[in-house]
């Protein structure tokens, strides 16, 4: 949100004086160095790898290195079907990431189960246990779609306010940064979803 008169800012920049706000600087630094966790589940992971290769080059957006350890990553791109056997591990990895952290659900399977929805071992979307920031539809989404999703995430970060009621989760003292990990029960996962975040309420909270 601009807290300065734009004409004054442009006038000053022509004189060689660069003025910014702390919020813009903070968000600019964070959005241009989002490091993803090296984490691919299924077919979408191959398009994710293709997006980081020479033709589409995710590195020029700041996602230079895919970190192998969740402790060093900012972004978890859930690329592929999340099965019930894998779900506790996904949530555990999410919990291990330090704040601020983001999740992109890439592909139809990560959003809602995709073509494998009816499977007994398939979790119908990772947003049942973990909050998702950007959803990228597709089966698999093209690398350009992943780039667009990444740019959407960057826009989201850019527009975050540091103070006030709408500040992001990592700046709120009482917002949870770790979510309960489901367990493998006799017939499925226990619990089958996290009621605090799913189903999404109409207010969008």
């Amino acid at each position: 949100m601009p807290l300065m008169d734009e004409r004054l800012r442009t006038e000053l920049s022509r004189q060689g004086v660069f003025v910014t706000t702390l919020e813009e600087l903070y968000n600019w630094g964070r959005k241009n160095s989002v490091w993803p966790l090296g984490f691919g589940l299924a077919c979408c992971a191959i398009e994710m790898i293709a997006a980081s290769m020479a033709r589409w080059d995710l590195a020029r957006f700041g996602a230079e290195v895919f970190r192998p350890s969740p402790r060093q990553a900012d972004l978890m791109i859930v690329a592929g079907t999340v099965t019930k056997k894998m779900a506790p591990q996904v949530v555990r990895l999410y919990n291990q990431m330090p704040e601020p952290k983001y999740v992109i659900a890439m592909g139809a399977c990560a959003i809602s189960g995709g073509p494998f929805r009816e499977g007994y071992n398939v979790l119908q979307g990772i947003d049942r246990y973990v909050p998702v920031d950007v959803h990228i539809p597709g089966c698999p989404p093209r690398p350009e779609a992943l780039l667009h999703g990444f740019m959407t995430l960057q826009k989201l970060i850019e527009e975050q306010e540091l103070t006030g009621a709408r500040r992001p989760r990592h700046l709120q003292v009482d917002a949870p940064s770790e979510f309960p990990i489901p367990e493998h029960g006799a017939h499925g996962l226990v619990p089958s979803h996290n009621p605090a975040i799913w189903p999404p309420s109409e207010s969008g909270a």
Partner: peptide, 13 residues
């Protein structure tokens, strides 16, 4: 089994 997507069961229906 971490990517067991029940292809064979879905194939039957």
């Amino acid at each position: 089994g971490y990517l067991h997507r029940n292809h064979e069961k879905i194939g039957e229906s």
